[in-house]
Nucleic acid binder design. Structure first.
Lengths: 220, 220
DNA sequence: TAAATAGTGTCTGTCAGACACTATCTT
DNA sequence: AAGATAGTGTCTGACAGACACTATTTA
């Protein structure tokens, strides 16, 4: 029989703060890389986790006290050198949490517009590379993917939704085009309510359709 | 400390036989699932593999005697039930081998046009699900992705290349559109040679460009 | 009416697919 | 010339982005 590699999960946890993409980083409190910033991570608990996705959500819940609203597998990173403790593999998940649920923003670090492979933060393990890939994936998602929906509260105006898309993609979107695409894709529907700011013309409120919620459920 | 999960790699190995997509399946010769068909798989060898990609290529080489020409990570499948031996995770790779290198076609099984989730072959473990995902991925790759190039010999005519694309995608492509797209994407270039069948107008031979070969190298 | 944001109608450049056309070879 | 495949020119419908327009509210 062979030496079993170490298997962990890491979570790249994104949210939007003041319209800017932020990611969660924790200062490590033990070796290796003690004191250095790192992604959220942990071991699989074989007695309680029914999948690596499950483990990732548990890790986020335990260390952060937050339910993630969406998670998807990014990729599995592996090799003999990435962890000094030995040959390891880490299944990495991209997760998003609603800005409105984040109470403590101290551990969220901004992802600049000019994000490059050259590490902005000097992260432990191979987490610079992982974060780079995660940001690329999230930015390159098709312009009108439903991912940004998981950053919204239960109802929202189309203008609010557009702002979130623009925050994620880091590029302005034409209002008319945005609305046409979002509506025709059927990922949102009017809730029937109206948001009246008493300042100008009130906006219709929308919510994610069942179709989109299914996508969410399937990631649980 | 926790019980370490089992970590394996599985390889979904595709090739084209008579214009039809085929995948490699092996009859298992030990428990669990003795005698049943399964994907190619194996354990990580921590002394010799420098990544799970490496392990996947080694597995293909050892069990098949074939160098794969391209491999990419599909996804990691995990859970307590998928392997009766215990909580396991498998990093799954999609690989392709050149048809011209396959001597023994007996272990390659056709992927029908009407491929659905309903298992055509009754595979061991969760390999039905894995194969389904792999076929979906390969079929849904953008129509003009460079993946089919890795099924070609070193030089080829554009008509041959188009046939391979059509075999993978299972749908006819317009000749003029195909040529324009392929050329403008810069993934192939004329080799300068000519293929003369002595039957009709000879065709120019092409080869993959450096750009594409880099993509291949980066997967090693 | 002015200010502000919500929401829409329409033009245009781009591009993939359709398809007919030309080109070059053998017999 | 006929037959066969290689390779190209051109039209068109769909559609994303640009942008100006209308709509609805408060003050």
């Amino acid at each position: 029989m062979f030496v079993k590699p170490i298997l962990t999960v890491d979570v790249v946890c994104f949210t939007l703060i003041q319209g800017t993409l932020h990611t969660l980083l924790m200062k490590r409190e033990k070796e290796p890389f003690n004191g250095q910033l790192a992604l959220l991570g942990g071991y699989i608990h074989t007695e309680e986790d029914s999948s690596t996705m499950d483990a990732a959500k548990r890790v986020a819940r335990d260390k952060l006290g937050l339910e993630v609203t969406y998670a998807e597998q990014l990729e599995t990173f592996s090799g003999p050198l990435r962890d000094p403790r030995g040959w390891s593999a880490s299944v990495v998940y991209i997760a998003v949490v609603r800005p409105s649920m984040v109470k403590e923003t101290a551990d969220f670090y901004p992802i600049g517009t000019t994000w490059t492979k050259n590490a902005e933060y000097n992260l432990a393990f191979d987490h610079n590379e992982i974060l780079f890939q995660a940001v690329s994936r999230i930015r390159n998602k098709s312009t009108y993917s439903s991912l940004p929906l998981f950053l919204m509260d239960s109802t929202f105006t189309l203008t609010e939704l557009q702002n979130v898309y623009e925050g994620m993609m880091q590029s302005p979107i034409d209002k008319a085009t945005f609305r046409r695409k979002i509506i025709e894709q059927g990922i949102v529907e009017p809730s029937g309510e109206i948001l009246d700011t008493k300042l100008h013309r009130p906006a219709k409120l929308y919510r994610a359709t069942d179709k989109t919620i299914q996508l969410f459920k399937s990631t649980i």
